[in-house]
Amino acid sequence: MTAVRAIGDPVLRLDGVSLAFGGVKALNDISLDVREHEIRAIIGPNGAGKSSLLNVINGVYHPQQGTITFRGKPRHNMDTHETAALGIARTFQNIALFRGMSVLDNIMTGRNLKMKASVLEQAIWFGRARREELANRAKVEEVIDFLEIQHIRKTPVGRLPYGLQKRVELARALAAEPSLLLLDEPMAGMNVEEKQDMCRFVLDVNEQFGTTVVLIEHDMGVVMDISDRVVVLDYGRKIGDGTPDEVRSSKAVIDAYLGVPH
């Protein structure tokens, strides 16, 4: 596979985004950009607003102020299914798989936007419905091969161990062939080996498919190793932004993580 990885122009830009729940300011005047093909990490202490930021990007929350520009087009209060149609996929901090369904069905659901057959066509399982089902199944099998989960294809997701569930969730997001992938703590709660696997998958996705990745992660070793640029949040404010080395040596970031001497 040829490397398509060459960091390009910004695909996503947030300008002065603020989000408040009543009196709590989850996000306060956040501006940042995400460039094509890069791995962009978001870090910060608990409650810093990292997940809220992802939720704003994919439309779960609508910010009260500020603009979000995706691929040159400003968007206003877009719903999540609309951002999904634009090519934004995500995984969740707490696993959000469809527990009553098999691994295969979960990943197939990730391709629902690629299937256009009407309910009637699906009911008679003929023509377009059948063709689409089989073509998308082939695509899903590629994702299954890529993430090395062939052996659990038909298993109900509820029976899988935590690490594999995380991987299935990534598979479901990848099945949509997103151009921007949002990962909310993909390595949380994993052992070292699972973390290494997950890192490899994130890097491979980024390298082979050219997918832009925005990820939240608490493991600093992972963040410093795999990300191109890091943004640091604290109490809803951006306190740092730059390459891992720049962020590591920033005084504001050190203060936020280690505390300030009185």
Binding site: T80, A84, A89, A96, R99, N112, A176
Partner: peptide
């Protein structure tokens, strides 16, 4: 699959379109 996705986890279902 769309029906079952809505049944099992509606937020995640909406996020994938």
């Amino acid at each position: 699959r769309q029906w079952m996705a809505i049944r099992d986890m509606d937020v995640a279902a909406e996020v994938i379109g």
